[in-house]
Design a protein around this nucleic acid. Structure first.
Lengths: 113, 113
DNA sequence: CAGTATCCCATAAGATACTG
DNA sequence: CAGTATCTTATGGGATACTG
């Protein structure tokens, strides 16, 4: 995760896209930005279509990038809470613009946000 | 291209990510935003690592989404120029924020932009 | 409940050759 | 020069079963 095999070596946009690449990372961060703190199962319910494998895999990657905090309560049954780090919070303005763009260019009527 | 098989049906962020998904679309738009108008070969030289197949494929997709204009000069040898549509230009603020984020969080020193 | 591990398949993406 | 077509390989991602 600390290796960035980019071709476009010195471009910050490429760097950002490499960190947030894949199908779900932006959406996981977006979901946590709206809900604050969520348990694993809650997060999954808020991301329709994501599979168990993808969610746990992406969460590990995001944690490694220090974009999410993982707080584990050592109890039975287990409880784990996820939230955004300060670093991830600086991505929220980008997500807000993506939301605006989506609403403006949405081919259907009246999307929520 | 007019079908959006999303799971997160009513989310504009998901919609935006579906339109700009894949490995190269954001970067193609970013490159054109900086250079204005580029021929096919110039575009390819400005996108280190992209293959012939990917560039032509992504250009077709972006044209179908009305994010780029394709102007063909009927001459020999052929000349084709690509530029951003107004719709794509509204994505530039997002790319600018991605650039800022990349510069701030870049693990190496002094990236260009 | 919150994960890991394994198997399998669909698609993304690369290499190469050919064409107007 | 600016593409298309074809073939192959690498990777992403799904389904399912198992564990602390």
């Amino acid at each position: 995760m600390t290796e960035y095999k980019l071709t476009h070596h010195d471009c910050p946009v490429t760097y950002t896209l490499s960190v947030l690449g894949g199908k779900w990372k932006w959406l996981i961060i977006y979901t946590l930005s709206g809900e604050g703190t969520l348990r694993y199962g809650e997060l999954k319910r808020n991301l329709p279509g994501i599979t168990h494998k993808m969610l746990s895999q992406e969460l590990k990657g995001l944690e490694a990038e220090q974009l999410i905090d993982r707080k584990e309560y050592h109890q039975i049954p287990p409880k784990v809470e996820y939230s955004l780090t300060k670093k991830a919070q600086t991505l929220i303005p980008i997500l807000d613009l993506m939301c605006d763009w989506g609403k403006t260019n949405w081919p259907k009527a009246n999307p929520g946000c």
